[in-house]
Design a protein around this nucleic acid. Structure first.
Length: 461
RNA sequence: UCCUCGAUAGCUCAGUCGGUAGAGCAGGUGGCUGUUAACCACCUUGUCGCAAGUUCGAAUCUUGCUCGAGGAGCCA
Protein backbone atom coordinates (compact mmCIF):
# COMPACT_ATOMS: atom_id res chain seq x y z
CA UNK A 1 0.00 0.00 0.00
CA UNK A 2 1.24 3.47 -0.84
CA UNK A 3 2.43 5.58 2.03
CA UNK A 4 0.77 8.98 2.39
CA UNK A 5 2.21 12.28 3.53
CA UNK A 6 0.24 14.02 6.25
CA UNK A 7 0.12 17.28 4.29
CA UNK A 8 -1.83 15.47 1.54
CA UNK A 9 -4.03 13.56 3.96
CA UNK A 10 -5.12 16.74 5.74
CA UNK A 11 -5.73 18.51 2.46
CA UNK A 12 -7.75 15.75 0.78
CA UNK A 13 -9.75 14.59 3.82
CA UNK A 14 -10.63 11.29 2.14
CA UNK A 15 -12.81 9.87 4.92
CA UNK A 16 -13.17 6.08 4.68
CA UNK A 17 -9.92 5.60 2.76
CA UNK A 18 -7.39 3.06 4.02
CA UNK A 19 -3.90 4.58 4.30
CA UNK A 20 -0.39 4.11 5.65
CA UNK A 21 1.35 6.90 7.55
CA UNK A 22 4.92 7.01 8.83
CA UNK A 23 6.34 9.62 11.16
CA UNK A 24 7.37 10.60 14.65
CA UNK A 25 5.24 10.87 17.76
CA UNK A 26 4.69 14.43 18.97
CA UNK A 27 2.56 13.55 21.97
CA UNK A 28 0.59 10.62 23.38
CA UNK A 29 -2.56 10.93 25.48
CA UNK A 30 -3.75 7.70 27.06
CA UNK A 31 -6.85 6.48 28.74
CA UNK A 32 -7.69 2.96 29.81
CA UNK A 33 -8.77 1.54 26.51
CA UNK A 34 -7.80 4.09 23.89
CA UNK A 35 -4.73 6.19 23.16
CA UNK A 36 -4.48 9.40 21.15
CA UNK A 37 -1.20 9.69 19.28
CA UNK A 38 -0.28 12.91 17.48
CA UNK A 39 2.05 11.95 14.66
CA UNK A 40 4.11 14.29 12.49
CA UNK A 41 6.04 13.37 9.35
CA UNK A 42 7.59 16.77 8.64
CA UNK A 43 5.52 17.39 5.54
CA UNK A 44 3.64 20.17 7.32
CA UNK A 45 3.24 21.76 10.71
CA UNK A 46 0.00 20.03 11.69
CA UNK A 47 0.01 16.59 13.29
CA UNK A 48 -2.33 13.74 12.40
CA UNK A 49 -4.24 12.29 15.34
CA UNK A 50 -4.06 8.52 15.44
CA UNK A 51 -6.60 6.58 17.51
CA UNK A 52 -5.18 3.35 18.85
CA UNK A 53 -6.94 0.65 20.87
CA UNK A 54 -4.89 -1.55 23.19
CA UNK A 55 -2.88 -4.42 21.74
CA UNK A 56 -2.66 -3.13 18.22
CA UNK A 57 1.10 -3.18 17.94
CA UNK A 58 2.52 -5.75 15.55
CA UNK A 59 5.94 -6.29 17.06
CA UNK A 60 7.72 -6.80 20.35
CA UNK A 61 7.31 -3.14 21.34
CA UNK A 62 4.11 -2.27 23.09
CA UNK A 63 1.84 0.72 23.13
CA UNK A 64 2.87 1.50 26.68
CA UNK A 65 6.46 2.08 25.47
CA UNK A 66 5.26 4.73 23.04
CA UNK A 67 6.50 8.21 23.91
CA UNK A 68 7.31 11.55 22.30
CA UNK A 69 9.99 11.03 19.66
CA UNK A 70 9.20 7.43 18.70
CA UNK A 71 8.99 6.58 15.01
CA UNK A 72 5.87 4.79 13.82
CA UNK A 73 4.21 3.17 10.84
CA UNK A 74 0.43 3.14 11.10
CA UNK A 75 -2.09 1.48 8.82
CA UNK A 76 -5.69 2.45 9.28
CA UNK A 77 -8.80 4.14 8.01
CA UNK A 78 -9.41 7.87 7.89
CA UNK A 79 -12.47 8.94 9.82
CA UNK A 80 -14.25 12.17 10.62
CA UNK A 81 -13.25 13.20 14.12
CA UNK A 82 -16.10 13.37 16.64
CA UNK A 83 -14.15 15.77 18.88
CA UNK A 84 -12.96 19.34 18.53
CA UNK A 85 -9.41 20.07 17.43
CA UNK A 86 -9.25 18.27 14.11
CA UNK A 87 -11.52 17.46 11.18
CA UNK A 88 -10.18 13.99 10.49
CA UNK A 89 -8.23 11.35 12.34
CA UNK A 90 -6.75 7.96 11.65
CA UNK A 91 -8.37 4.88 13.21
CA UNK A 92 -5.37 2.57 13.55
CA UNK A 93 -5.65 -1.05 12.47
CA UNK A 94 -1.98 -1.95 12.79
CA UNK A 95 0.63 0.10 14.55
CA UNK A 96 4.30 -0.70 14.13
CA UNK A 97 6.85 0.99 16.38
CA UNK A 98 9.96 1.48 14.23
CA UNK A 99 12.13 3.07 16.89
CA UNK A 100 11.66 3.85 20.57
CA UNK A 101 12.86 7.11 22.12
CA UNK A 102 13.72 6.68 25.80
CA UNK A 103 15.02 9.87 27.45
CA UNK A 104 14.11 11.93 24.38
CA UNK A 105 15.52 15.44 24.92
CA UNK A 106 12.60 17.23 23.28
CA UNK A 107 9.56 17.69 25.44
CA UNK A 108 6.05 18.65 24.52
CA UNK A 109 6.47 22.09 26.01
CA UNK A 110 8.37 24.98 24.52
CA UNK A 111 12.16 24.94 24.71
CA UNK A 112 14.50 27.91 24.56
CA UNK A 113 16.29 28.40 21.23
CA UNK A 114 19.59 28.40 23.13
CA UNK A 115 18.91 24.88 24.37
CA UNK A 116 17.78 23.71 20.93
CA UNK A 117 21.08 24.90 19.44
CA UNK A 118 22.83 22.36 21.67
CA UNK A 119 20.80 19.61 20.02
CA UNK A 120 20.89 20.94 16.48
CA UNK A 121 20.55 17.41 15.10
CA UNK A 122 17.16 17.01 16.80
CA UNK A 123 15.78 20.54 16.67
CA UNK A 124 14.23 20.22 13.17
CA UNK A 125 11.69 17.97 14.89
CA UNK A 126 10.30 20.96 16.79
CA UNK A 127 7.44 22.99 15.35
CA UNK A 128 9.40 26.19 14.98
CA UNK A 129 12.63 24.80 13.53
CA UNK A 130 10.69 22.49 11.24
CA UNK A 131 8.74 25.49 9.97
CA UNK A 132 11.99 27.41 9.45
CA UNK A 133 13.35 24.52 7.38
CA UNK A 134 10.25 24.36 5.17
CA UNK A 135 10.25 28.13 4.66
CA UNK A 136 13.96 28.11 3.90
CA UNK A 137 13.38 25.48 1.23
CA UNK A 138 10.43 27.37 -0.29
CA UNK A 139 12.43 30.59 -0.27
CA UNK A 140 15.36 28.91 -1.98
CA UNK A 141 13.06 27.52 -4.66
CA UNK A 142 11.49 30.96 -5.14
CA UNK A 143 14.94 32.49 -5.66
CA UNK A 144 15.63 30.12 -8.54
CA UNK A 145 12.12 30.52 -9.97
CA UNK A 146 12.35 34.31 -9.98
CA UNK A 147 15.61 34.38 -11.92
CA UNK A 148 14.92 31.41 -14.18
CA UNK A 149 11.56 32.86 -15.25
CA UNK A 150 13.37 36.04 -16.25
CA UNK A 151 16.03 34.31 -18.33
CA UNK A 152 18.89 34.48 -15.83
CA UNK A 153 21.43 31.65 -15.84
CA UNK A 154 22.55 30.06 -12.59
CA UNK A 155 26.37 30.11 -12.37
CA UNK A 156 28.29 27.89 -9.95
CA UNK A 157 31.14 30.16 -8.89
CA UNK A 158 34.07 28.61 -7.02
CA UNK A 159 34.07 28.05 -3.28
CA UNK A 160 37.86 27.95 -3.12
CA UNK A 161 39.22 31.26 -4.34
CA UNK A 162 42.44 33.23 -4.46
CA UNK A 163 41.13 36.80 -4.43
CA UNK A 164 39.30 38.30 -1.47
CA UNK A 165 36.90 40.65 -3.27
CA UNK A 166 38.70 43.51 -1.51
CA UNK A 167 37.08 44.65 1.66
CA UNK A 168 34.48 41.92 1.93
CA UNK A 169 35.98 40.67 5.17
CA UNK A 170 38.51 38.31 6.70
CA UNK A 171 38.98 35.00 4.90
CA UNK A 172 39.51 31.40 5.95
CA UNK A 173 42.71 29.97 4.49
CA UNK A 174 42.45 26.68 2.63
CA UNK A 175 45.59 24.60 2.92
CA UNK A 176 46.85 21.04 2.44
CA UNK A 177 50.01 21.76 4.42
CA UNK A 178 50.70 19.65 7.49
CA UNK A 179 50.43 22.45 10.02
CA UNK A 180 52.09 20.39 12.75
CA UNK A 181 55.10 19.81 10.50
CA UNK A 182 55.96 23.02 8.66
CA UNK A 183 59.73 23.15 8.00
CA UNK A 184 61.14 25.69 10.44
CA UNK A 185 63.43 27.16 7.77
CA UNK A 186 60.52 28.06 5.52
CA UNK A 187 59.76 31.75 5.59
CA UNK A 188 56.11 32.66 5.81
CA UNK A 189 55.96 34.53 2.51
CA UNK A 190 56.98 31.52 0.46
CA UNK A 191 55.20 28.81 2.44
CA UNK A 192 52.27 28.87 0.02
CA UNK A 193 54.55 28.03 -2.94
CA UNK A 194 54.69 24.48 -1.64
CA UNK A 195 51.00 24.33 -0.84
CA UNK A 196 48.38 22.50 -2.89
CA UNK A 197 47.49 25.38 -5.23
CA UNK A 198 50.97 26.91 -5.33
CA UNK A 199 49.61 30.09 -3.78
CA UNK A 200 47.53 31.14 -0.81
CA UNK A 201 43.93 30.05 -1.25
CA UNK A 202 40.87 30.83 0.81
CA UNK A 203 37.17 30.12 1.09
CA UNK A 204 35.20 32.55 -1.03
CA UNK A 205 33.74 35.69 0.51
CA UNK A 206 31.72 36.50 -2.62
CA UNK A 207 31.06 35.09 -6.09
CA UNK A 208 30.57 38.52 -7.58
CA UNK A 209 33.77 38.96 -9.57
CA UNK A 210 33.41 35.54 -11.20
CA UNK A 211 29.72 36.22 -11.81
CA UNK A 212 30.70 39.40 -13.66
CA UNK A 213 32.82 37.29 -16.01
CA UNK A 214 29.83 35.15 -16.91
CA UNK A 215 27.50 38.14 -17.18
CA UNK A 216 29.91 39.43 -19.84
CA UNK A 217 29.10 36.30 -21.84
CA UNK A 218 25.58 35.18 -20.95
CA UNK A 219 23.93 38.52 -20.18
CA UNK A 220 22.00 37.98 -16.97
CA UNK A 221 23.33 35.50 -14.42
CA UNK A 222 23.05 34.78 -10.71
CA UNK A 223 24.97 32.82 -8.10
CA UNK A 224 23.45 31.23 -5.01
CA UNK A 225 25.98 29.52 -2.84
CA UNK A 226 27.80 29.34 0.47
CA UNK A 227 30.06 32.19 1.51
CA UNK A 228 32.58 32.35 4.34
CA UNK A 229 33.76 35.15 6.60
CA UNK A 230 36.36 34.73 9.33
CA UNK A 231 35.25 37.92 11.09
CA UNK A 232 35.03 37.62 14.85
CA UNK A 233 31.44 38.83 14.82
CA UNK A 234 29.34 37.76 17.78
CA UNK A 235 25.87 39.02 16.96
CA UNK A 236 22.45 37.64 16.14
CA UNK A 237 22.90 38.69 12.50
CA UNK A 238 26.28 37.14 11.56
CA UNK A 239 27.49 33.69 10.59
CA UNK A 240 30.92 32.46 9.54
CA UNK A 241 29.23 30.33 6.85
CA UNK A 242 26.16 31.72 5.13
CA UNK A 243 24.43 31.62 1.77
CA UNK A 244 24.35 34.53 -0.58
CA UNK A 245 22.42 35.34 -3.74
CA UNK A 246 24.27 37.52 -6.23
CA UNK A 247 22.68 38.43 -9.57
CA UNK A 248 24.82 40.20 -12.15
CA UNK A 249 23.30 41.88 -15.20
CA UNK A 250 24.96 43.07 -18.38
CA UNK A 251 23.67 46.24 -20.08
CA UNK A 252 22.19 47.38 -16.79
CA UNK A 253 22.45 50.62 -14.84
CA UNK A 254 21.87 51.43 -11.18
CA UNK A 255 18.17 52.29 -11.53
CA UNK A 256 17.45 49.02 -13.34
CA UNK A 257 19.48 47.20 -10.69
CA UNK A 258 17.26 48.67 -7.96
CA UNK A 259 14.14 47.79 -9.97
CA UNK A 260 15.18 44.13 -10.11
CA UNK A 261 16.11 44.08 -6.42
CA UNK A 262 12.72 45.49 -5.44
CA UNK A 263 10.81 43.08 -7.69
CA UNK A 264 12.91 40.22 -6.34
CA UNK A 265 12.21 40.92 -2.67
CA UNK A 266 8.50 41.37 -3.35
CA UNK A 267 8.35 38.15 -5.34
CA UNK A 268 9.96 36.21 -2.47
CA UNK A 269 7.59 37.65 0.12
CA UNK A 270 4.50 37.15 -2.07
CA UNK A 271 5.47 33.56 -2.83
CA UNK A 272 5.77 32.72 0.86
CA UNK A 273 2.48 34.44 1.68
CA UNK A 274 0.90 32.22 -0.97
CA UNK A 275 2.66 28.89 -0.33
CA UNK A 276 3.74 28.87 3.33
CA UNK A 277 0.79 30.40 5.15
CA UNK A 278 0.50 27.71 7.81
CA UNK A 279 4.16 27.97 8.81
CA UNK A 280 4.10 31.79 8.70
CA UNK A 281 1.08 31.77 11.02
CA UNK A 282 3.14 29.85 13.56
CA UNK A 283 5.71 32.65 13.57
CA UNK A 284 3.01 35.30 13.70
CA UNK A 285 1.52 33.55 16.76
CA UNK A 286 4.64 32.73 18.74
CA UNK A 287 7.59 34.75 17.46
CA UNK A 288 6.44 38.11 16.14
CA UNK A 289 2.89 39.40 16.40
CA UNK A 290 3.17 41.97 13.62
CA UNK A 291 4.76 39.58 11.12
CA UNK A 292 2.07 39.81 8.45
CA UNK A 293 1.83 43.58 8.81
CA UNK A 294 5.56 43.83 8.26
CA UNK A 295 5.54 41.45 5.27
CA UNK A 296 2.70 43.37 3.64
CA UNK A 297 4.54 46.62 4.25
CA UNK A 298 7.34 45.27 2.05
CA UNK A 299 5.06 43.58 -0.44
CA UNK A 300 2.69 46.46 -1.07
CA UNK A 301 4.65 49.68 -0.64
CA UNK A 302 7.00 51.09 -3.25
CA UNK A 303 10.46 51.32 -1.76
CA UNK A 304 11.54 54.87 -0.95
CA UNK A 305 14.59 55.86 -3.01
CA UNK A 306 16.92 58.60 -2.00
CA UNK A 307 20.58 59.41 -2.30
CA UNK A 308 23.08 59.12 0.50
CA UNK A 309 23.45 62.91 0.41
CA UNK A 310 19.69 63.37 0.85
CA UNK A 311 19.67 60.81 3.66
CA UNK A 312 22.40 62.70 5.50
CA UNK A 313 20.33 65.88 5.14
CA UNK A 314 17.22 64.11 6.50
CA UNK A 315 19.15 62.81 9.51
CA UNK A 316 20.64 66.22 10.23
CA UNK A 317 17.21 67.83 9.86
CA UNK A 318 15.79 65.40 12.45
CA UNK A 319 17.72 67.09 15.27
CA UNK A 320 17.95 63.74 17.02
CA UNK A 321 21.20 63.29 18.89
CA UNK A 322 22.94 60.17 17.66
CA UNK A 323 25.78 58.36 19.37
CA UNK A 324 27.67 58.77 16.10
CA UNK A 325 27.18 62.38 14.90
CA UNK A 326 25.95 62.67 11.32
CA UNK A 327 28.32 64.13 8.75
CA UNK A 328 28.67 63.74 4.99
CA UNK A 329 31.34 61.17 4.18
CA UNK A 330 30.74 58.90 7.16
CA UNK A 331 29.40 55.37 6.84
CA UNK A 332 25.87 55.11 8.19
CA UNK A 333 25.68 53.32 11.55
CA UNK A 334 22.84 50.99 12.38
CA UNK A 335 21.23 53.69 14.55
CA UNK A 336 21.05 55.92 11.45
CA UNK A 337 19.68 53.18 9.22
CA UNK A 338 17.06 52.31 11.79
CA UNK A 339 16.05 55.94 12.22
CA UNK A 340 15.57 56.33 8.46
CA UNK A 341 13.57 53.12 7.96
CA UNK A 342 11.65 53.05 11.24
CA UNK A 343 11.10 56.65 12.28
CA UNK A 344 11.32 58.89 9.20
CA UNK A 345 9.82 56.58 6.56
CA UNK A 346 8.41 53.47 8.27
CA UNK A 347 9.06 51.31 5.22
CA UNK A 348 11.92 49.92 3.11
CA UNK A 349 14.36 52.54 1.88
CA UNK A 350 16.92 52.31 -0.93
CA UNK A 351 19.92 54.57 -0.44
CA UNK A 352 22.09 55.36 -3.48
CA UNK A 353 25.26 57.15 -4.47
CA UNK A 354 27.46 56.72 -1.42
CA UNK A 355 30.85 58.44 -1.03
CA UNK A 356 33.41 56.39 -2.90
CA UNK A 357 35.71 56.39 0.13
CA UNK A 358 33.45 54.01 2.05
CA UNK A 359 32.73 51.61 -0.82
CA UNK A 360 34.81 48.96 -2.66
CA UNK A 361 36.93 49.46 -5.77
CA UNK A 362 34.59 47.90 -8.32
CA UNK A 363 31.74 50.40 -7.96
CA UNK A 364 31.24 52.88 -10.79
CA UNK A 365 32.43 56.41 -10.02
CA UNK A 366 29.77 59.07 -10.62
CA UNK A 367 30.30 62.30 -12.59
CA UNK A 368 30.88 64.25 -9.37
CA UNK A 369 34.02 62.10 -8.82
CA UNK A 370 33.05 61.92 -5.13
CA UNK A 371 30.30 59.30 -5.08
CA UNK A 372 29.77 55.87 -6.61
CA UNK A 373 26.71 54.20 -8.17
CA UNK A 374 26.00 52.10 -5.09
CA UNK A 375 22.69 51.09 -3.57
CA UNK A 376 21.71 49.57 -0.23
CA UNK A 377 18.21 48.29 0.50
CA UNK A 378 17.44 48.97 4.16
CA UNK A 379 14.59 47.23 5.98
CA UNK A 380 12.90 48.37 9.18
CA UNK A 381 14.14 46.28 12.10
CA UNK A 382 16.85 44.51 10.14
CA UNK A 383 19.00 47.15 8.49
CA UNK A 384 20.85 46.47 5.28
CA UNK A 385 19.44 43.43 3.49
CA UNK A 386 20.76 44.09 -0.01
CA UNK A 387 23.93 45.81 -1.13
CA UNK A 388 24.61 46.41 -4.79
CA UNK A 389 26.06 48.72 -7.38
CA UNK A 390 26.63 49.51 -11.00
CA UNK A 391 30.14 48.23 -11.68
CA UNK A 392 32.97 50.32 -13.05
CA UNK A 393 33.08 49.25 -16.69
CA UNK A 394 35.75 51.79 -17.82
CA UNK A 395 39.17 50.21 -17.72
CA UNK A 396 41.08 53.42 -16.95
CA UNK A 397 38.78 54.35 -14.07
CA UNK A 398 38.93 50.85 -12.62
CA UNK A 399 42.71 50.71 -12.64
CA UNK A 400 42.92 54.22 -11.22
CA UNK A 401 40.63 53.20 -8.32
CA UNK A 402 42.70 50.09 -7.64
CA UNK A 403 45.87 52.17 -7.56
CA UNK A 404 44.25 54.66 -5.19
CA UNK A 405 43.55 51.77 -2.83
CA UNK A 406 47.07 50.30 -3.24
CA UNK A 407 45.73 47.07 -4.71
CA UNK A 408 47.95 44.66 -6.65
CA UNK A 409 46.52 44.99 -10.16
CA UNK A 410 48.54 41.96 -11.25
CA UNK A 411 46.25 39.71 -9.22
CA UNK A 412 43.19 41.12 -10.98
CA UNK A 413 44.35 41.04 -14.61
CA UNK A 414 41.57 38.64 -15.50
CA UNK A 415 39.03 41.03 -13.97
CA UNK A 416 40.50 43.98 -15.87
CA UNK A 417 40.31 41.88 -19.06
CA UNK A 418 36.53 42.04 -18.77
CA UNK A 419 36.90 45.81 -19.43
CA UNK A 420 39.66 45.33 -21.99
CA UNK A 421 37.56 43.10 -24.24
CA UNK A 422 34.06 44.28 -25.09
CA UNK A 423 33.19 46.03 -21.87
CA UNK A 424 29.57 46.95 -21.18
CA UNK A 425 27.72 48.77 -18.39
CA UNK A 426 26.62 46.21 -15.85
CA UNK A 427 25.27 45.99 -12.34
CA UNK A 428 24.34 43.53 -9.62
CA UNK A 429 23.62 43.06 -5.95
CA UNK A 430 24.01 40.63 -3.08
CA UNK A 431 21.35 39.33 -0.70
CA UNK A 432 22.25 37.41 2.45
CA UNK A 433 19.90 34.44 2.34
CA UNK A 434 19.73 33.87 6.11
CA UNK A 435 18.88 37.50 6.74
CA UNK A 436 16.00 37.12 4.31
CA UNK A 437 14.84 34.00 6.19
CA UNK A 438 15.11 36.00 9.42
CA UNK A 439 13.04 38.77 7.91
CA UNK A 440 10.20 36.54 6.69
CA UNK A 441 10.01 34.44 9.87
CA UNK A 442 10.74 37.08 12.50
CA UNK A 443 13.32 34.76 14.04
CA UNK A 444 15.55 36.89 16.25
CA UNK A 445 18.80 34.94 15.98
CA UNK A 446 20.39 34.05 12.64
CA UNK A 447 21.74 30.82 14.21
CA UNK A 448 18.18 29.52 14.22
CA UNK A 449 17.45 29.98 10.50
CA UNK A 450 20.31 27.79 9.20
CA UNK A 451 20.41 24.04 10.00
CA UNK A 452 23.90 23.84 11.50
CA UNK A 453 25.25 27.32 12.26
CA UNK A 454 28.96 28.13 12.18
CA UNK A 455 30.02 31.03 14.39
CA UNK A 456 33.24 31.98 16.20
CA UNK A 457 34.08 29.14 18.58
CA UNK A 458 31.26 26.94 17.35
CA UNK A 459 31.17 24.41 14.51
CA UNK A 460 29.61 21.38 16.18
CA UNK A 461 27.64 18.77 14.23
C1' U B 1 37.06 42.53 19.67
C1' C B 2 34.33 45.96 23.27
C1' C B 3 30.11 46.87 26.83
C1' U B 4 26.07 44.72 29.78
C1' C B 5 23.66 40.53 31.80
C1' G B 6 23.50 35.41 32.93
C1' A B 7 24.98 29.90 34.32
C1' U B 8 20.77 26.00 40.30
C1' A B 9 17.16 18.77 38.68
C1' G B 10 16.55 16.12 31.83
C1' C B 11 13.82 21.24 30.48
C1' U B 12 11.89 26.31 32.24
C1' C B 13 12.92 28.77 36.52
C1' A B 14 12.48 30.41 42.15
C1' G B 15 15.95 30.44 46.15
C1' U B 16 14.92 36.53 51.31
C1' C B 17 19.97 38.87 55.66
C1' G B 18 25.67 33.82 54.22
C1' G B 19 22.95 28.73 57.99
C1' U B 20 23.54 23.26 53.86
C1' A B 21 17.97 22.66 47.83
C1' G B 22 12.52 24.08 45.84
C1' A B 23 8.25 24.54 42.06
C1' G B 24 6.11 23.46 37.31
C1' C B 25 7.01 20.38 33.28
C1' A B 26 9.52 15.77 31.75
C1' G B 27 10.31 10.62 33.72
C1' G B 28 8.20 6.23 36.89
C1' U B 29 3.77 3.67 39.19
C1' G B 30 -1.49 3.45 39.60
C1' G B 31 -6.43 5.43 37.98
C1' C B 32 -9.72 7.16 33.97
C1' U B 33 -14.59 5.15 27.17
C1' G B 34 -12.72 10.53 23.26
C1' U B 35 -8.20 13.22 24.67
C1' U B 36 -6.21 18.21 22.48
C1' A B 37 0.55 21.11 26.14
C1' A B 38 -5.46 15.66 28.55
C1' C B 39 -6.69 15.02 33.65
C1' C B 40 -6.27 12.87 39.05
C1' A B 41 -3.06 10.51 43.01
C1' C B 42 1.68 9.04 44.61
C1' C B 43 7.10 8.61 43.65
C1' U B 44 12.16 9.57 41.64
C1' U B 45 15.75 13.28 40.06
C1' G B 46 21.33 17.95 42.09
C1' U B 47 29.66 18.08 41.32
C1' C B 48 24.19 24.92 42.59
C1' G B 49 29.39 26.09 35.27
C1' C B 50 35.02 25.38 36.76
C1' A B 51 39.11 26.88 40.09
C1' A B 52 40.78 29.56 44.11
C1' G B 53 39.81 33.04 48.22
C1' U B 54 37.00 35.30 52.63
C1' U B 55 34.17 32.82 56.66
C1' C B 56 32.71 28.61 62.19
C1' G B 57 29.69 28.01 57.75
C1' A B 58 29.11 29.92 50.60
C1' A B 59 24.05 28.46 45.48
C1' U B 60 24.44 33.39 48.00
C1' C B 61 30.35 37.59 49.07
C1' U B 62 35.46 38.38 46.20
C1' U B 63 38.92 37.17 42.10
C1' G B 64 40.20 34.45 37.75
C1' C B 65 38.56 31.23 33.89
C1' U B 66 34.90 28.73 30.63
C1' C B 67 30.36 28.89 28.18
C1' G B 68 25.81 31.44 26.74
C1' A B 69 22.52 35.78 25.68
C1' G B 70 21.58 41.02 24.38
C1' G B 71 23.80 45.40 22.34
C1' A B 72 28.02 47.77 19.60
C1' G B 73 31.83 47.43 15.86
C1' C B 74 32.73 44.71 11.22
C1' C B 75 29.40 43.25 7.60
C1' A B 76 25.42 40.15 4.25
Amino acid sequence: MQCHKIVQILRQKAVGEKIVVQGWVKTVRRSKSVSFIDINDGSCLTNLQVIAEQNQTTDENHLKDLSTGCSLRVTGTLAASPAKGQDIELQAETLEILGLAPDYPLQKKRHSFEYLREIAHLRPRTNSLGAVARIRSALSFAVHTFFQERGFFHIHTPIISTGDCEGAGETFTVTALDLENIPSSTNLASVWDDDFFGCQANLTVSGQLEAEAYAMALGNVYTFGPTFRAENSNTSRHLAEFWMIEPEMAFCNLQEDIDIAEQFIKYLVDTLLKDCLEDLELFASFIEKDLFKRLKNVSEKTFIRLSYTEAIAELQKSKKSFKFPVAWGMDLQSEHERYLTEVIFGQPVVLTDYPKTIKPFYMRVNEDQKTVAAMDVLFPGIGEIIGGSQREERQDNLVARMNELNMQTSEYEWYIDLRRYGTVPHAGFGLGFERMVQFVTGMKNIRDVIPFPRTPGSASF
